[in-house]
Design a binder for these strands. Structure first.
Length: 287
DNA sequence: TGCAGTGTTGCTTC
DNA sequence: CGAAGCAACACTGC
């Protein structure tokens, strides 16, 4: 779920709240996270950055807390109290009332009395602490950032022209371009008017161009709406995004295509084991 | 009631 | 080697 726009939103929010705070303690009920504590207690938070769908929290001691939220994870900046039913938000509002924020599995206790908490219903999220110098090799498989200058049409074309895979899967391949997942791959293809099953290497130059040109505007609009929220994603204050209301393909099976004058009905198929929603009328499979 | 489906990634298998 | 399948987990909706 959290794809580039959602991760961007969380990172931008956390940047306002957590730098310069010290980590006093760590609590978790997930075995794999137990080892985090000894690496971070006593250190100060220096920076918060995003790379693809990864969150990088820089701390003193030249270490990075690398967070990948996977399907249902989201970091929140708040304050929780321990109750017999688990952690409960002290702050009123969505963090307390929204069931999507109930599943706290990791808490960093900060020096101002607040917490950085990881909510993760399905417990797929990964959190590891690494020395600064190994972070590069860990992330080097990632492709360019969509908003980076080195992500241009020529490079995009070069990177997909030999891929004998379906374009939907190629767009979600983090080594081609970092940050696009299922929702935004569907949205990009809808805008570009390209069928998700088309093979990347067989696309016409014009189609590749349209896909390339759709990526940034789609992501930009989603960032502006603070991401897409279903049962899972929330921002750093536990609030939902708004992009799900603006989507054109994902989650709209059976609905009329929103493209002006199109009249198609959105279809949902399975592409390489993942759902793909598209309009069969204007995203035609044939030329 | 029960089981298929869910935004991700990486490991195993063929 | 690449491609495909599946596991990690918990909940929702048909």
């Amino acid at each position: 779920m959290p794809e580039l726009p959602e991760v961007h939103t969380i990172v931008t929010d956390l940047k306002r709240f957590i730098p310069n705070l010290k980590i006093k303690d760590v609590w978790t009920d997930i075995l794999a996270f137990k080892k985090i504590k000894k690496d971070v207690v006593g250190e100060k938070i220096i920076s918060v950055e995003r790379r693809g769908k990864n969150i990088l929290i820089g701390i003193t001691g030249k270490k990075i807390i690398l967070v990948h939220q996977k399907m249902t994870g989201h970091l929140m900046y708040g304050k929780w109290d321990k109750t017999k039913d688990g952690w409960r938000s002290v702050l009123e509002g969505p963090m307390r009332d929204d069931p999507g924020n109930r599943f706290i599995h990791l808490l960093f206790f900060l020096s101002n009395g607040r917490h950085l908490g990881l909510c993760d219903m399905r417990k797929f999220a990964s959190v590891i602490v690494l020395p600064e110098k190994t972070i590069k090799e860990k992330l080097e498989k990632l492709g360019p950032e969509p908003f980076d200058k080195n992500f241009n049409l020529k490079k995009f074309f070069e990177s997909i022209k030999n891929k004998n895979k379906k374009i939907k899967s190629v767009l979600m391949d983090q080594s081609i371009v970092a940050g696009i997942g299922n929702i935004y791959a569907d949205e990009v293809l809808w805008v570009a008017a390209v069928h998700p099953l088309k093979i990347a290497s067989k696309l016409k130059k014009e189609e590749v161009k349209k896909i390339y040109e759709a990526i940034k505007p789609v992501l930009k609009r989603a960032i502006k709406a603070r991401g897409s929220s279903y049962i899972d994603y929330r921002d750093a204050q536990g609030k939902k995004g708004k992009y799900q209301e603006m989507q054109n393909a994902y989650g709209l099976k059976g609905k009329k295509c929103k493209k002006r004058g199109c009249g198609g009905i959105i279809e949902k198929i399975v592409v390489d084991g993942r759902s793909a929603s598209f309009c069969p009328k204007h995203q035609t499979k044939y030329d």
